[in-house]
């Protein structure tokens, strides 16, 4: 068991900067998700922690030990790869035992640990099969079992569920969470899927363009995004951003007005689609519905407020349809005020 400290890690490929001086603390036993779109540097960061990629500058500490210059095998970690990377020429048993064999563990220990890991991931029936005979989901389990068999101080996972179909992904996600909670392993989990990150992680670090935009608990990230990017990336449908003119400390648009922080003449009102009430007969933002999509649990409305595209999650029985014009009332406490130029949150 060990915490991880990432100290001003920087990575450049020629002229391109993949990571711009990233610093991060991960507590012992914590589950951290690195979330971001492809090309944001999250996988590069993970590979630097694993030692598969060399940082341009900066240090990686695992449990107080500086591992920056060590090869992967001396860092005391395990990894689950996106394409599983299960060895095709070994049986499932030998795959799971691989790390232990490399540590020169004795045969009884190997047998005990392999069986423990296999039972955690429910792969006992396949132990003497070859990976070619397994389905994608089963291979994924083998890859996770192989990682857990060595009882690693740190577990790194690189989009481990992205090659599974939607239903299997959901099943594996909850199972993974259970298994990892039991083992209490410090885990860094790279994903571009925000529901995966929200569901699994203790904390999420949202990355964009080689920097960490925000780091915090899933609910904080969702409710109080620090930047416009975070609000737009986390949550489906994404947060709405409505530009409003400011006069005398109040932002006002149409029939809506609310006090706002900052002293600029324009501000962005960030509001989640489900945090807007439809105010029948009262004043609010004039919302013209252009598309209505019934999604079962909600009715997703897409339309415009003074030429700004927004989405609203209405009650499924609200009976609204394309062409309707209604007044919207954003819940004041749920609004995140963002600077209109930098896109960063202002005020509390």
């Amino acid at each position: 068991m060990a915490g991880i400290t990432i100290d001003r890690i920087k990575k450049t490929f020629g002229a391109a900067t993949a990571l711009a001086e990233i610093s991060l603390e991960i507590a012992d036993g914590e589950f951290l998700a690195l979330l971001g779109p492809s090309g944001c540097g999250k996988t590069t960061l993970l590979r630097i922690i694993a030692g598969l990629e060399t940082q341009t500058s900066g240090r990686v500490l695992i449990g107080e030990r500086d591992v920056s210059a060590l090869p992967p095998k001396e860092r005391g970690l395990a990894m689950v790869f996106q394409n599983y990377a299960v060895f095709p020429h070994m049986t499932v048993y030998e795959n799971v035992a691989f790390g232990l064999r490399m540590q020169k563990a004795d045969e009884t220990t190997i047998k005990r640990e392999v069986e423990r890991a296999a039972s955690l991931l429910h792969i006992e029936p396949y132990l003497d099969r070859y990976p070619a005979k397994l389905s994608g989901g089963q291979r994924q389990r083998v890859a996770v079992a192989r990682a857990l068999a060595v009882r690693p101080a740190v577990l790194l996972m690189d989009e481990p569920l992205s090659n599974l179909d939607a239903l299997l992904r959901l099943e594996m996600r909850s199972e993974l969470k259970g298994v990892l909670q039991q083992s209490g392993t410090t885990t860094i989990y790279v994903t571009h899927d925000q529901t995966e990150a929200m569901g699994l992680a203790d904390r999420i670090a949202v990355m964009h363009g080689g920097v960490i935009e925000q780091i915090g608990a899933p609910q904080t990230i969702y409710e109080r995004p620090a930047t416009k990017f975070v609000g737009g990336f986390v949550g489906s449908p994404p947060m709405n951003f409505i530009r409003m003119p400011v006069a005398g400390g109040r932002a006002a648009l149409g029939g809506f007005s609310a006090p706002c922080p900052g002293a600029k003449s324009e501000i962005i009102c960030g509001i989640r689609p489900e945090d807007m009430r439809i105010a029948l007969g009262r004043s609010g933002l004039d919302f013209k519905v252009s598309v209505a999509e019934p999604l079962g649990s909600t009715l997703l409305l897409t339309g415009k407020v003074q030429d700004q595209l927004i989405r609203v999650a209405a009650r499924p029985d609200s009976g609204l349809k394309a062409g309707d014009i209604v007044a919207l009332e954003p819940e004041a406490q749920r609004i995140v005020w963002l600077d209109s130029e930098t896109g960063r949150a202002v005020g509390a």
Partner: peptide, 14 residues
């Protein structure tokens, strides 16, 4: 696949 080799490195191989 390069990943196979990387997996071997991570699990203790030179």
């Amino acid at each position: 696949p390069r990943e196979l080799e990387e997996a071997a490195w991570v699990f203790g191989c030179s």
